[in-house]
């Protein structure tokens, strides 16, 4: 496990020393400031606007980081051959994959933590607005969603180019958020006599994790009590961990027998 953690901390260090990380953080902070401006201009909706725009900023920039830095994680190591010396140092391929994943998840967590802290500070100082448990839960659930997205990004970047990996990861993210609709469309198409497309949509529904489970922005914005979300919300992190474990397992199995050119 030491080797995994050493690779993880190195990956974290690499990401936070990357200029892209700071550019994303600056843009995200800018968007939080925009939320503040919009709240000032709105009448009576200021609390909802701060939370809505603030959470959206964290979601979008978290996703951008996860996808566009995540897809380069393995590809860069292969392209620049830094992986050669890692393997020669006695680290196994599964330790490498797991270390890269953990390190990058730490990076995304750090970014969400910084932005979440800023958002909470804004809300705390804004008259008539307060930090609710659903807001904290939304941030935590978002991290679990990112865990799955990073799993996809690492899987795709282990065998394809960064551009293709980014496209595939974003497709999975979109499909993941349309999960419930996929099942509905599948039923409708089946009734209309398109069984092949219906089967494809049903297959995607079962293969791609349902990412909409991690989106509770509506509950945060409309001040719904955390209890109304139901206890099933506590199972969502377990679902995310299982889905990510499967994605990493597939990556490790394919990576284990691969020749590095």
């Amino acid at each position: 496990m030491n080797k995994v953690l050493t690779i993880a901390f190195n990956t974290y260090k690499e990401a936070v020393r990357n200029k892209v990380f700071y550019i994303l953080v600056v843009f995200a902070v800018g968007l939080l400031m925009l939320a503040l401006l919009l709240a000032t201009l709105s009448l009576g909706e200021d609390d909802r606007i701060i939370k809505d725009v603030g959470l959206s900023a964290i979601n979008w920039f978290g996703l951008l980081l996860a996808v566009f830095v995540g897809v380069n994680l393995i590809y860069d190591e292969l392209d620049k051959r830094t992986i050669y010396t890692i393997i020669a140092s006695g680290a196994t391929r599964w330790q490498f994959i797991l270390g890269k994943f953990l390190g990058f998840f730490m990076t995304v967590t750090a970014m969400v933590a910084v932005m979440g802290f800023l958002l909470c500070t804004l809300i705390a100082f804004w008259p008539g607005s307060n930090i609710t448990p659903t807001l904290i839960l939304a941030l935590i659930l978002f991290l679990f969603e990112m865990m799955i997205v990073i799993g996809f990004a690492i899987l795709f970047s282990s065998f394809s180019t960064p551009v293709l990996s980014a496209v595939l990861t974003l497709m999975c993210w979109i499909i993941g958020h349309l999960s419930e609709d996929l099942l509905e469309w599948s039923k409708q198409l089946s009734d209309k006599g398109s069984p092949a497309v219906a089967a494809l949509l049903k297959g995607l529904y079962y293969i791609i994790p349902n990412l909409e489970l991690y989106n509770i922005k509506q509950e945060v914005v409309y001040r719904e009590d955390i209890g109304q979300l139901g206890y099933t919300v506590l199972l969502h992190p377990i679902y995310a961990v299982c889905a990510t474990a499967i994605l990493l397992l597939i990556t490790i199995v394919t990576f284990n027998w691969r020749d590095f050119k």
Partner: peptide
Amino acid sequence: GYMPENPYFYRFLTGDEFLKFYAQLTG
């Protein structure tokens, strides 16, 4: 021990950090 052709190492690390990283990687 292995040194690759045209080595490209982790450019964001200092020389000191780089060697400590590999030392820790080997336990």
